[in-house]
């Protein structure tokens, strides 16, 4: 047994483009993470509700619809409300650099744009994990 990295992969919004989310979910699986895949059309409330029940370490949210400036802040606020502000949020999708800067200022850990090799978020997550995770004594 022992601790595994648990990560929620969510795709909010009304568009049906989940290919990117599926690719990243599979890459995370191959990296040895436990990936909770929620599917399409998730609201921030559904995402945070699932994250709390699944006790994930990281929320990975893909936004292609242009609604990132409403979705990410809402997710961060809800996490705080549910006493889960320690969960780490990262994002992907089509997000202009200046918006990405703003989101990271609000507390999003990292934003990965289109064409990012899947090794990048995986390395990022492993680094974050090493820095933030205290090994549980068993």
């Amino acid at each position: 047994m022992g601790k595994k990295i648990r990560i929620l992969v969510a795709k909010p919004g009304l568009d049906g483009h989940d290919r990117g989310a599926k690719i990243i979910a599979t890459a995370f699986r191959d990296a040895g993470f436990e990936v909770i895949y929620t599917g399409l059309h998730q609201t921030p409330e559904m995402i945070v509700d699932a994250a709390v029940q699944e006790d994930v370490d990281i929320l990975s949210i893909s936004v292609l619809s242009g609604a990132h400036m409403t979705i990410f802040p809402r997710v961060l606020a809800l996490l705080k409300e549910k006493g889960a502000a320690d969960m780490h949020v990262i994002g992907g999708g089509i997000i202009p650099d200046e918006d990405a800067e703003k989101l990271m200022g609000m507390g999003v850990g990292a934003i990965f744009g289109p064409g990012t090799p899947t090794t990048e978020p995986i390395d990022y997550i492993r680094d974050w994990w090493m820095k933030h995770h205290q090994e549980q004594d068993s």
């Binding site: 599979t26 699986r29 191959d30 993470f33 436990e34 895949y37 599917g39 699932a50």
Partner: peptide, 11 residues
């Protein structure tokens, strides 16, 4: 092979 998993029942 990797020890990872896709948990997809929530879909």
């Amino acid at each position: 092979f990797s020890g990872g998993a896709i948990l997809g029942d929530r879909v």
